[in-house]
Design a protein around this nucleic acid. Structure first.
Lengths: 196, 196
DNA sequence: AGAGTAACCGAACGATCGGTCGGGACAAGG
DNA sequence: CCTTGTCCCGACCGATCGTTCGGTTACTCT
């Protein structure tokens, strides 16, 4: 009894189309007309599924934030040596970024023009802060180098990971998410220099 | 004979105001009305100095691109062992990013909606490509680890450096651009792990 | 003082913005 | 058959978009 309904939009399926357009043109650069063309329905029909443009943005960034904060609730992120928890979180961040790529991409690009965007920025800062605490604990354990300030190191590592949304595409053959997670972890913890 | 002119706008001084607003609200999210408020002159007066909104964007990204490509022309980027040229370019990129922060910020955020934006994206790719060649040469010399693909490593390093525009502010005391350049270089080449 | 011009302004242009409205097509349940 | 509710549409709203235009102010030069 596979659900054989009419071929129609749900708020979720409409969201996936909208997020794709948002990422191509930017949120402000996307008009409801653009969305209607991409979705194949009229502009007014969109309002049957969602209350407006901003709800689409809110749904998208919520999904991304849920994915990221979910990492911190997992067991390997809560128990164990700080440096190992940190490496786990770094690897899981790569996985979440690749799995929820369009939603996280949109999250990382909000500027703060509307209330929804400012809320998203605040949640992001909270997540960053919690990972920074993890890095600080690892530094206190003496497991990561102490000659780089924790705040600075956190931002640089986040910069590396978050840059995934600028170039990673799931269809690009020969570069699975596992390979990317390994590369990020090796680069973050071991650096570029050859140890030989 | 210090030039004591009237207190008026030049295309350059207007640009610095415009770029600041562009970075706060996003290019598409910024109207000419916003610019006129920020500049303290009327909307129509802006057109006395520049042909339109897009010229402001073009001037801004051109300035950023000139700064970046200028690095590759410098002597330390052209002669010497590849790994050392690479480290020099990485450090100079940090310096250019901090020195021309608002202009590079704008460059790194263009999406490709207009012809100017697509041209900027193309120039960026060209710059990335040339640095990737440098990393490839360093790998061939055996000076950087060979277990991470060159393309992937380049993108991750660029991601870390370019993330500067998301948080670095020149007025933030206690974090000079030299300190940032050192941290980036140490993190990129040595990694986070404690060597003790 | 008068001419020339750089800098600026308010008003308005057509186009497009996000969003609303009344109604039609169509499948499901009786 | 007819009703009900989902899904969708074209037409339209006031507001705002980037840009243009005619005209005024204010400084420079002679």
């Amino acid at each position: 009894m596979t659900t054989a309904k009419r071929d129609t939009y749900t708020p979720e399926s409409l969201l996936s189309v909208a997020v794709q357009v948002f990422n191509e043109r930017g949120y402000d650069g996307t008009s409801m007309e653009h969305l209607s063309k991409a979705a194949g329905i009229s502009k007014s029909s969109i309002y049957h599924h969602v209350t407006g443009k901003e709800e689409l943005l809110r749904r998208a960034v919520s999904r991304a934030l849920d994915g990221l904060f979910g990492i911190l609730d997992e067991e390997h992120a809560r128990v164990g040596r700080a440096v190992e928890r940190l490496e786990y979180v770094v690897r899981r961040m790569v996985e979440v970024l690749t799995a929820e790529l369009p939603y996280v991409t949109l999250l990382l690009r909000v500027r703060g023009n509307t209330g929804t965007e400012r809320w998203a920025l605040e949640r992001r800062r909270e997540f960053d802060h919690q990972v920074a605490e993890l890095l600080k604990a690892a530094a206190a354990d003496g497991d990561v180098r102490g000659d780089i300030e924790v705040r600075l190191a956190t931002r640089l590592v986040f910069g590396m990971i978050n840059s995934l949304v600028e170039w990673y595409r799931p269809d690009s053959r020969g570069m699975g998410e596992r390979e990317v997670a390994d590369a990020v972890a090796q680069l973050v913890f071991g650096g570029l220099r050859n140890e030989a």
